[in-house]
Design a binder for these strands. Structure first.
Length: 435
RNA sequence: GCGAUUGUGGCGAAGGGGUUAACGCAUCGGAUUGUGGCUCCGACAUUCGUGGGUUCAAGUCCCAUCAGUCGCCCCA
């Protein structure tokens, strides 16, 4: 048996409904905030991710799916969405839009080569948003508010918004110097992982889970204390805007993020819902003012976030939503010789009128067709055999009342829609009355 | 990359050396050939992830390997 690739999974028909619902909320809330969707390719030149996400990050060092194509070019399946959006904005010169800032969102699969566990897959989905072209603190607040409002729309309530600032390039440099000096003297008090981080990415020592609460970490210098005047004003205004919005958030001085491109505001929202397992971060994001210039684009400030869609679905599981009862409008029980009667035409005419109709393909006996009907949960059973065919009628049985009526074939559609409120045709056919 | 844990029918499971691999759900057939859901009867794993080994005898013990799950790292 050929099996699926590790870390991938099939979304089966009985699960697709919740995806559709979630995708609808993404579209609706994005519309409210006036974000437009952008769809970029799922793979790009490897260099794009190496230069944007950062050569020293774990994502690029050990988690990308790289492959050489037949023209000997190195390609990478996208591990995140921001880099592609940046590339596309530069390449298509979207920044020339007179109506800046650009407000874009994306939704789709991402790929990281990791060991799968609850809430983490090798092919997973992100919903992300970016505001490009403004360094206003209002933009930072807008992005955070968008994320929070989206969770509210999903009715996910057990959330915890944490924000921090890394400052501008100047502040970051000052801070890194101070941190390195401190760690040089104190690293021996920290865990093995921190000793490794100290070599590779010292910032990440700050949010170590093991040493969280230790003296060494508590006394370590924090980015927020090394802000330039400009950076400090920026962050203050972000928090003022969040306060005006009435958002409940905490400043987490240890919050740093794993991608190199962040400057100024960073944020995460996590949830303690038990169905999430160990991966409780629903969304992460921040400002990245230097990324456009570093990818040879114009000097555009920007801010964005990315949600892990699988984690959202796990969170929604905890809110134990009643599954919607699936149903069809009619199950057509055929007892005639289907090739000799107009049974197929009757079925198809109803479908053209916007009714969901299904029937048996196995030439089953009456009892078996009834059983199949029970599984499909129809509003009406339509029973049609040689007698009915001769008289040009259909025996129509309503499932909730069990009442059965003989209806002339010519009046069948009208009879059925009088008893059905929710049709499904999309309005594209000749017989449609605009349902 | 590291650690823990689990692989027995379509699904959920019992069996922890002894020859016939429980049981439940689902499915199919019949009682009941054009009026179903309940009930009753019957059918349904030449075989226990895969490959070796130990043994008179292996789902059962040993080794290897593959896969799933959860966690670490890291991240959404």
């Amino acid at each position: 048996m050929i099996r699926k690739i590790k870390g991938t999974y099939d979304i089966l028909p009985d699960e697709i409904g919740k995806w559709h619902e979630l995708e609808a909320v993404i579209r609706n809330v994005s519309k409210l905030f006036n974000f437009q969707e952008i769809r970029t390719p799922m793979f790009e030149a490897s260099e794009l991710f190496h230069r944007s996400v950062g050569e020293t990050t774990d994502i690029v060092k050990k988690e990308t799916y790289d492959f050489e194509d037949r023209g000997k070019r190195m390609n990478t399946l996208r591990p995140e969405g921001t880099a592609s959006v940046v590339r596309s904005v530069i390449e298509n010169k979207l920044y020339a839009d007179p109506n800046l800032p650009l407000k874009l969102y994306y939704y789709g699969p991402m790929f990281r080569y990791e060991r799968p566990q609850k809430g983490r897959q090798r092919q997973f989905h992100q919903f992300g948003a970016e505001i490009i072209g403004s360094d206003s603190p209002l933009v930072d607040a807008e992005v955070i508010n968008f994320a929070a409002t989206f969770l509210e729309a999903l009715k996910i309530k057990n959330i915890n918004i944490r924000i921090n600032t890394l400052g501008d390039a100047e502040s970051k440099e000052e801070y890194q110097k101070a941190l390195n000096e401190y760690l040089e003297k104190n690293i021996q008090h920290l865990c093995d992982d921190c000793n490794r981080r100290y070599q590779e990415n010292p910032l990440r020592v700050l949010d170590c889970k093991v040493d969280k609460g230790s003296e060494t970490l508590i006394n370590a210098p924090k980015p927020i204390n090394y802000l330039s005047d400009k950076a400090k004003i920026h962050f203050d205004q972000v928090t003022m805007a969040l306060d005006s919005l009435g958002l409940d958030y905490q400043i987490d001085e240890n919050l740093v993020r794993g991608l190199d491109y962040y400057t100024h505001t960073v944020f995460e929202i996590d949830s303690d819902l038990e169905t999430l397992g160990a991966q409780s971060t629903l969304v992460g994001g921040g400002r990245y003012n230097n990324l456009y210039a570093s990818l040879a684009g114009p000097d555009l400030p920007a801010m964005g976030f990315a949600f892990g869609v699988e984690r959202l679905l796990l969170a929604l599981e905890a809110i134990n939503q009643e599954p919607v009862n699936d149903y069809i409008h009619c199950y057509f029980i055929n007892l005639s010789d289907i090739f000799q009667t107009d049974a197929l035409k009757i079925i198809n005419d109803l479908r053209h009128g916007g009714l969901i109709v299904d029937y048996d393909f196995f030439n089953k006996n009456l009892k078996a067709q009834f059983k199949q009907a029970d599984r499909l949960n129809p509003v009406y059973l339509l029973i049609y055999g040689d007698e009915e065919a001769k008289k040009q009628v259909v025996n129509v049985k309503r499932q909730d009342t069990k009442e059965q009526v003989e209806v002339d074939v010519n009046n069948l559609y009208q009879y059925l829609i009088n008893g059905i409120s929710n049709r499904n045709c999309g309005g594209g056919c000749d017989s449609c009355d605009g349902c």
